[in-house]
Nucleic acid binder design. Structure first.
Lengths: 163, 163
DNA sequence: CAGATAATGTTATATTATAACATAACATAG
DNA sequence: CTATGTTATGTTATAATATAACATTATCTG
């Protein structure tokens, strides 16, 4: 069994989120610069808001913040930015929650598995080779060709079990 | 590797859907009778409509049909029936599509993995031991206790690849 | 600069789902 | 069999999520 790859871990007690967030933004800037993509102020701000915590964020919560900051934000404002960010792999949508989380491996092609703690709300992202592989092979044996995987795992994280 | 368990297969060319549907209804009736649950005409009708095909069905499409059949159906009519059917394990919700499919193993406790063909729309349901097991063990090694799994696999089914 | 393209603004509306309260159907104890 | 509680359904309204369509602005490119 190959080692599981944790893309976004559950936070350690000493997690410095401002550092974490800053690194996300720098990476995104860099990624876009390299490819001639435009991480406009709006898109950058939405990315920041998604990454405000390690919990899933709702589109309309982002909208509310934008509206408070500046007149004229409407649903398309948010959804377009989210579309861009998803296309570049900076954020993921959690289908089972209609909510968005930042991606821990921006720009790196990967399949994701999300662990979602329903106590504290925190999301961890895995890119586990074995899981993708196993599902692929099972599908394959049924003659099914996989193009997209949605794997969302709800439960209770370690810290919340301890508490 | 244990054998994959296919709960709802992709249909064979000679699939007799009326028989399939009838069997689903009989099973549900029986299941409810045994437990003193009420498969009311409304719930039964919604179950029928979900199982009208092997493709995911949208709540508002069901609503439309109900409204055509009988005055007075409203969103809660449908959502309540769907809730009941989901609780009894007669239907599943596909989170990534906001749509509903009939369950191939009604009343039997299981985790599901859905294979969804984006060409023909047909959904197959698996209850694969290995997948659940692997995900459980990976989560476990991160100290995460799984309570609910959402696994939805999009791609192209065998027949559609052939065609 | 002109024209093209991309991004954002703006208004409206579609789609999905639930809240809240009223009524009806049904079960069962007295 | 009837009062009472419970479950199911009816009804109205609204919340929550998302997109369509077209106008305007910014940016890029020749």
């Amino acid at each position: 069994m190959k080692e599981k790859q944790v893309v976004t871990p559950f936070r350690s007690v000493d997690h410095q989120h401002s550092t974490c967030l800053n690194s996300v933004l720098v990476t995104a800037e860099h990624y876009c610069q390299q490819r001639g993509l435009k991480l406009t102020p709006l898109r950058r701000r939405v990315l920041e808001l998604v990454w405000k915590t390690h919990e899933p964020v709702k589109a309309y919560d982002i909208l509310q913040t934008l509206q408070a900051e500046k007149k004229g934000a409407a649903p398309p404002t948010v959804y377009r930015a989210l579309d861009f960010l998803q296309q570049q792999g900076f954020v993921h949508k959690l289908e089972s929650m209609n909510a968005y989380v930042g991606c821990g491996a921006p720009g790196q092609h990967h399949t994701s598995q999300f662990l979602i703690c329903h106590i504290c709300g925190v999301v961890a992202e895995l890119d586990d080779y074995d899981i993708g592989e196993l599902i692929g092979s099972k599908a394959d044996s049924l003659g099914f060709k996989v193009s997209q995987l949605t794997i969302e795992i709800k439960g209770v994280c370690g810290s919340c079990q301890a508490a």
